[in-house]
Amino acid sequence: MDVVVDNLGVFGRGLLVSIQISAATFVLAGLLGVLLTVCRISPVLPLRLAATGYVELVRSLPLLVLLTLFVFGLPEIGLIGPLLWTAVAAMSLYWATFFSETLRAGVRGVPLGQIEAARAIGCTFGQVLTQVVLPQAVRTSIQPLASLLIAVILNSSLAAAVGVTQELTGQTQLLDQRYAQPLVTFGAAAACYVALAFVIGRSAGILDRRLAVQR
């Protein structure tokens, strides 16, 4: 147990880096996910084809393949960036496809009759979207988005596999090599991840109940 107490700072910093990677990934994936969703439902054919193709393609790639391709492949074509941000870029590009799927499911969840009714009373496309569709789509997307965030956090550990050892899993591995007390170090790291997932799950539950529409 001493290993954990003595190295609280190491765990804390590792956890912080993990949270930073996950947060950056989630925000970037969100922005790109919205863009992809807009392209996928737009009436412009090339955009729709490109976005649909992108989502289908990237979703069927393993994340680790994308990470290795970015971290070890990009320098080969002269694109060298900071390691951490290269990993974040790869993860954002990956999770954006899942973000897009979640958003689309949320939009699909709004009954068609509501959209038709809004159009029938003369709402413009913008009004239909902001007054009718999005308020409901966002509410139904809270739980799926929370699950997505948890998945992003858990998979941010994959950054350690391509050399971003500052994050929690990487730090734990280094600590284990130093102290050789795997049960304690890995147990503590696991506890951190479980706590994070628990907090996010609970907050999403509360948010979901607060914002639920009584129908």
Binding site: I150, L154, S157, A161, T172, D176, A180, P182, A190, V194
Partner: peptide, 22 residues
């Protein structure tokens, strides 16, 4: 179920890889 769903697979693999030999 709740714990194992909230642990990264990589962490578990490292735990097995580095923990088992000890």
């Amino acid at each position: 179920i709740e714990v194992l769903r909230a642990i990264p697979l990589l962490l578990l693999i490292y735990a097995f890889l580095l923990g088992l030999p000890t």
